[in-house]
Simulated scan of single mutants.
Amino acid sequence: MTAWIVLPVSLSAFSITGIWIVYAMAVMNHHVCPVENWTYNVTCSEETARKGFPKTCCTLQDIPLISKCGSYPPESCLFSLIGNVGAFMVVMVCMLRYAQVIEHSHRCWINTSALVSGCINALGLVMVGNFQVDHAKSLHYVGAGVAFPAGLLFVCLQCVLTYRIAETALDYWMAHVRVALSAGALVSLILSGVFFIHESFVLQHAAAICEWVFTVVILVYYGTFTYEFGAVNSDTMMAALVQRSHHQGSGVIMGSHGLGKSTAMGCGGRSLKSPGGSSTSTHLNCNPESTAML
């Protein structure tokens, strides 16, 4: 077990807790209507609700989309903080996962694509967090249009990688859990987009709920990397770089042992370390006698 297991847990806990605090602040400041409210009006007279109590008259502008909850101060300040810190933690998780897969299975285009999509997701989160929808709508929508699909692509690619490098029954169980989370994220994102393009109050409200579901599911998915990060140590990144050089410099020798086929399929040969284990990979420790035998 290593301290790196704290990273994905912190990402999930910090982000999920943070966005719900933003929602609570927006409701109490009368900036959005509660998520349980399904009654909307075309216009509302000036409201006389007491300070600190939810709105009682709601229009289309008061639908509790995540972005809408973080549009106005003081909750917009916390929303920006969550977007920036969360994006940084996403990049860290993506880089560690990328290095760990290389350490375990050599290089593969799926792993590289997952790293790129994860970083694009983080970039979109920065834009969403810092350009509020009511003040910089175009930039905000660009960020959301980048962050949501990139995040979905990242989790789908990680499902494939989890199956590719699974060795134990627990590894396959984790892969099944991630497939279920990815399916939930896909369905909720599609429904959110379909509902959002309609002007119906009910469908707009349903789009907001689907957006919340998608966001929470993706963040829970990031938290599942705690399972693999128990095997990460301070040498994982360096080991990945060394293995990349070793793989590039000895491709012919590796190909003669039948690893070329698995590389063409997406990932190279496996090491002796399970994703959820904590033992050190042994394929990097080549002694002179082994080299002479080759």
Rank of each mutant, 00 (worst) to 15 (best):
T280L: 05
A122E: 05
T17R: 11
W38L: 07
F53Y: 14
E167Y: 07
Q243T: 11
L115W: 09
H106L: 06
S192K: 04
M1H: 00
G266V: 03
T226D: 00
T39A: 13
V35E: 09
D134M: 06
I253W: 12
V91W: 04
E36G: 05
V42F: 09
L272Q: 08
V128Y: 06
F79V: 07
C33Q: 11
M265R: 11
E75L: 08
L115N: 02
L125W: 13
V213E: 10
T48G: 15
P73R: 11
C108E: 05
Y40Q: 12
G86H: 07
H283W: 14
I110A: 09
T282W: 02
C159N: 10
W173F: 13
N111W: 01
I209C: 04
K137G: 07
G70S: 12
S278H: 03
W4E: 00
N130I: 06
N121E: 14
V179S: 03
G184L: 07
R270D: 02
G86S: 04
S71W: 03
H176T: 05
L294E: 09
C57K: 11
H140C: 11
F214V: 07
V177H: 03
G145I: 04
C77Y: 15
W173D: 10
I82H: 08
A166C: 07
F88H: 03
M28I: 07
V85F: 01
G277E: 00
H30S: 14
R244C: 12
F79K: 07
S256A: 08
I120W: 06
S279T: 11
T263Q: 12
Y227V: 00
T2G: 00
V101K: 02
F131E: 05
S279A: 07
A169S: 14
M1G: 00
T39P: 10
S234I: 01
C77H: 13
Y23D: 02
V126I: 14
C210R: 11
F88Y: 09
A169N: 12
T236M: 01
R97M: 01
G193T: 15
G223L: 02
V133Q: 14
K55Q: 15
L81S: 13
L11V: 03
C108G: 15
V202A: 14
S271I: 02
T224F: 01
M89K: 01
G118W: 01
C77D: 08
A206Q: 13
L157V: 04
P275A: 07
L153A: 15
W38G: 01
N233E: 00
C108F: 00
V93M: 06
V128E: 08
W4S: 00
S67I: 10
T39D: 15
F201D: 13
F14W: 10
A3Y: 00
G269C: 03
S71N: 06
C57N: 12
N37M: 08
P149A: 02
D171E: 04
S279R: 04
L65T: 15
W212N: 03
S12T: 06
T168L: 03
P64Q: 13
F14P: 01
A26R: 14
F131L: 05
G70C: 10
V91I: 13
T280W: 01
S281F: 10
A183D: 03
